[in-house]
Design a protein around this nucleic acid. Structure first.
Lengths: 191, 191
DNA sequence: TATGACATGTAATCTGTTACATGATTAG
DNA sequence: CTAATCATGTAACAGATTACATGTCATA
């Protein structure tokens, strides 16, 4: 007999919401965060967010409570449940694979951005190290592919590919500098 | 009276297909291209590609012909129609806006990669220049946002943001070097 | 002749987009 | 009082994912 819990695959927007809900917020708050900050890649439309929140609540990852203080507009504050926090932590701390790289830095950076508050600085360093490792095997593969397409594709296609390689190399540099920043922070403990 | 043609908004996958179909290919060929090259971001699943091809054909942008030579497996070769080529060219040569930047370099690079064969080197240079212009106004805005979030977000979030800024700056550098590469090519005319 | 690669498709489901709808509260 | 903003939602549709279904051809 299979436990009735489905695999509950959560799309990227769902994790973005979980991460933001470390601070209790209403759907409207979340929409404004998406539309006003650099998270514009995520949809700020009600048709995306409210159903997503409903799904997360049905999965027991968040819990909404209607705020009805005197002279206040009706609004529903959502917050993470323990289960939601653990789901978020699992997602964030999962080691970086090559597939993660193929599917875009976007999601990797979202995970890292939430890492500090969710899983702590040690997890942040671990995530960075696993990213570094993944990049170190990925970049040579990119160079190899560049060699093979070198002569057969038109100039603009080759340049576009080189752009991707450069971006990946920049990412590796950033990763290394982020690691040292973190390690300094750990020792120096300015807080 | 409005002409009955709808706005026919085409998703990114559709344009990727149009670009690849400058060389006549079957659905299977296209799937292999997506799964075996660096275009893994696009789905190689039949449930995505065949319906997409059907839509493009219904819009008159491509045309499929069943190849039934002796001793060959049945397969349908698709090729661009003149209308499809013009649609592709329009999409590629449209100037880069800030929205294009927000929605990801991915699509910009796809446009550029196809630029050479579809619209020629002059269009490639024009596209690069418009990208450069967009980046030049975008990067200062990013720095400003970095300043404002600087102190209020945790370290990992700030670093993630900085990663985005750095990536954008690398993109600008790449753009400039690509422009000089192209201009050299234009004058030197090695072909 | 049976296995695996070629080649094309469909059906169920999920998510997101667009556009619309509703009502409360505050500012002018 | 009325207009704008706050706040939440729904309905119709388009597109992608996953899994399944079908049949051909080459080769061992």
């Amino acid at each position: 007999m299979i436990p009735s819990k489905g695999p509950s695959k959560i799309p990227s927007l769902g994790y973005a919401l979980l991460g933001l809900l470390q601070k209790p917020s209403s759907g409207y708050d979340l929409r404004k965060t998406f539309s006003s900050t650099s998270m514009k890649t995520y949809s700020d439309s009600p048709g995306a967010i409210y159903p997503a929140l409903a799904r997360l609540e049905k999965q027991g990852l968040i819990r909404g409570k209607v705020e009805q203080g005197s002279g206040m507009r009706r609004r529903q504050l959502f917050r993470l449940t323990p289960k939601g926090l653990s789901e978020l932590k699992t997602w964030i701390t999962r080691p970086i694979t090559r597939d993660d790289l193929l599917w875009g830095q976007q999601e990797i950076m979202l995970r890292f951005a939430f890492c500090d508050t969710t899983a702590g600085p040690a997890a942040a360093i671990a995530l960075l190290k696993s990213l570094e490792a993944a990049l170190k095997t990925y970049i040579p593969a990119l160079h190899e592919e560049l060699q093979t397409i070198q002569s057969i594709v038109p100039l603009s296609a080759r340049l576009a590919f080189e752009c991707g390689v450069q971006a990946t190399e920049t990412l590796l540099e950033w990763t290394r500098s982020a690691i040292t920043t973190y390690e300094k922070e750990e020792k120096g403990g300015t807080s």
